[in-house]
Design a protein around this nucleic acid. Structure first.
Lengths: 209, 209
DNA sequence: GTCTATACCGCGATAGAC
DNA sequence: GTCTATCGCGGTATAGAC
């Protein structure tokens, strides 16, 4: 009775995908605690028992899913960055534009950020994976860029990278995550143009303390 | 036996305080969804029915509490800022130190940030209250400082304030909120010293695009 | 105004048929 | 390998005594 290779039975990888997809929908929509495994199973189109046969428990499913999201560098703009040969100002503006348009404009990405930060107390290893896979490469890439472009006389390349990324993250946080673009208004291009100046022109202050 | 105006009966404000205190403990410890009204009542030392007589429901209690926290400017360092007459570099370093030491070092403040951001999807008015009461005054104060100190030739004071605050918030986010101080290491004073240079020295870039 | 006791529901997780 | 059915617990919210 055992068929050579059944097409409908014995499969698992497809369901795993379906479960992860359903879980992503639910977790991103309602957060960790407010998401029920019943809804996850329903959205995935499988039974709850199947979910528990593929993943140990709710925490395991959540962690697997979020680790997976935090590793998908393609979701962010971490690949098309070394090709450009523009001048520094253009490169930095282009990088920032990509971050603001490709990442911050995606509602799912904003929700993902909310969850990573909101659950960083109870899921610290998740937060660390996010920093390791997303933030660290960005900071290192920018640092490397500042180091390898001597025409930009930056005193401390790592700090310059922090200033650049920090300003952008803070902007996204206020405007997109916290829905407060009207409370502390700031035009996108105005920030970008001036931010570049703050980063690439930073020599020693003649007024020593 | 009935006293003219009993001191132990008919009171309500004390219990309200107790409930808010208990709710703060629980919500800050477990987040919104994972907090139970039973635990809130137990921590407050009252019965669950009393909680529901003082607040409409869980959402109402949560919102009242968080709005209250977001309005407590004293919890942040928003008062002792205009007294100083130092030079700009010292003032900015002092301000940043206060933010990093008084705010970011307090675990409750970190947890509060996690909740505000994590619940900003379902409680947008809470996030907006936080920005209105905390972030906006800080940005405006720094902007005013840059404007009223002509010796700092900053091209765009509002952007400079954003760069300054954004870098600090991002630093706190990585180090304290996301537990990743070891993944992307940065010494506190090294950031502060160089950040000041990035902010107060920002003239026009000779390389126009 | 505050308590105890409870109604009612949905949760995470599992047992057993197929 | 996946399903249906169910267990036990803990959730929010309320009714009624005092």
């Amino acid at each position: 009775m055992k068929k050579p290779k059944s097409v409908e039975r014995e499969l698992s990888a497809e369901k795993t995908e379906a479960i992860l997809d359903g879980a992503m929908q639910e977790f991103l929509a309602h957060g960790y605690a407010a998401t029920s495994m019943d809804k996850v199973a329903a959205t995935a189109g499988v039974s709850k028992a199947t979910v528990y046969s593929h993943f140990q428990d709710k925490q395991g499913l959540f962690s697997s899913l979020m680790q997976r999201l935090a590793s998908k560098k393609e979701l962010f703009n971490l690949q098309k960055l070394q090709a450009v040969q523009d001048n520094p100002a253009s490169f930095l503006k282009g990088f920032a534009s990509g971050m603001l348009d490709n990442v911050a404009a995606d509602p799912q990405m904003i929700t993902f950020l909310r969850i990573i930060i909101g659950e960083s107390g109870r899921f610290p290893e998740l937060a660390r994976a996010f920093v390791q896979n997303i933030e660290k490469p960005v900071l290192e890439m920018l640092t490397q860029y500042f180091v390898s472009h001597p025409e930009i006389q930056v005193q401390d390349p790592e700090v310059a990278a922090r200033v650049f990324v920090g300003t952008l993250v803070h902007f996204v946080l206020l405007r997109d995550v916290l829905h407060s673009g009207d409370i502390v208004p700031m035009e996108r291009d105005r920030l970008l143009n001036n931010l570049v100046n703050h980063v690439i022109i930073a020599k020693t202050d003649p007024n020593k303390t």
